[in-house]
């Protein structure tokens, strides 16, 4: 498939607010990106019109319960069947920030064995508590399964901003070890928070901005087609979005966030 033929759906609902910049990032890479309200999707459209699906950042339904949970339950209730077909066909799904929270709450991530009927992980309240907006370094851990980073070398350090108050990735305490092993076995670990020299944060704030278990910033499902991360690639797309661009004599045109969208597109070009 040529990039111009690729159709990506960016879903939104009341409280979604990172849809426009996500669309801009995709359009910059010459794919068709459409922002669709879920009401519209339910009434008149179908997820299956699209090659990939993105749950963008925001505060869906105000996140008045746990972050992502209301939208996740809503999606399962209203679009569950289509979403299952979409996922079973290995069409890519990306969740950024609130989108990641939704994918976890909906049981799509970590997705050790397909869609789970209950959340297997959680994006809990930050430690230290509170909303935190800052740039972080993340290290690429994936060996090539995650289609959103399949061309990114393992060990590469990327920079992106986070902005959330519920981003602490955790498993149930008693399953921590077992689930972490499975993440490794299945090559589902994608990003971990690290220092700029690549050393892992080891839980140290603010290098790990939320005390995520094992410094986890992003994971994919066992097929590598569903991926969620707390950092915002769409806010690290252009060089002038970076926090220190005024210090650089020469800067590339783009930031690291572009890699995520680029890899998705090159995967779709190759696959279909």
């Amino acid at each position: 498939m040529k990039s111009e033929e690729i159709k990506v759906c960016i879903l939104r609902v009341g409280g979604t607010n990172c849809d426009a910049e996500t669309k801009r990032s995709l359009e910059e890479l010459s794919v068709q990106a459409e922002i669709v309200h879920v009401n519209e999707m339910v009434k008149r459209r179908s997820l299956l019109e699209y090659d990939a699906l993105i749950f963008p950042g925001g505060f869906s339904y105000g996140d008045y319960v746990r972050a992502g949970v209301i939208w996740a339950k809503w999606i399962i209730a209203k679009l569950g069947k289509e979403l299952k077909v979409f996922a079973d066909e290995n069409r890519p799904i990306l969740g950024i920030c609130n989108g990641f929270q939704v994918l976890v709450e909906a049981g799509l991530l970590p997705g050790f064995e397909g869609i789970s009927s209950y959340p297997e992980a959680s994006l809990a309240t930050n430690v230290p508590p509170g909303y935190n907006c800052r740039w972080v370094h993340i290290k690429h851990e994936n060996k090539g399964k995650c289609i959103f980073t399949w061309k990114v070398p393992k060990g590469k350090i990327l920079r992106m901003p986070v902005a959330h108050s519920e981003g602490r990735f955790i498993f149930a305490k008693e399953k921590e070890k077992q689930y972490l092993e499975r993440l490794y076995e299945n090559d589902q670990l994608v990003f971990r928070y690290c220092y700029k020299n690549g050393e892992y944060a080891e839980g140290c704030f603010p290098i790990n901005p939320n005390s995520s278990f094992y410094d986890i910033a992003g994971v994919c499902n066992s097929e590598g087609t569903i991926f969620g991360l707390m950092p915002h690639p769409e806010r690290a797309f252009y060089w002038w979005q970076q926090p220190d661009w005024t210090r650089q004599g020469w800067m590339p045109q783009y930031g690291d966030g572009k890699l995520i969208f680029e890899n998705l597109i090159s995967y779709l070009e190759k696959e279909s």
Partner: peptide, 12 residues
Amino acid sequence: RTYDHEVKGNTV
């Protein structure tokens, strides 16, 4: 830092 100053991706 408790305010999102990056959303919309236009903060130069």
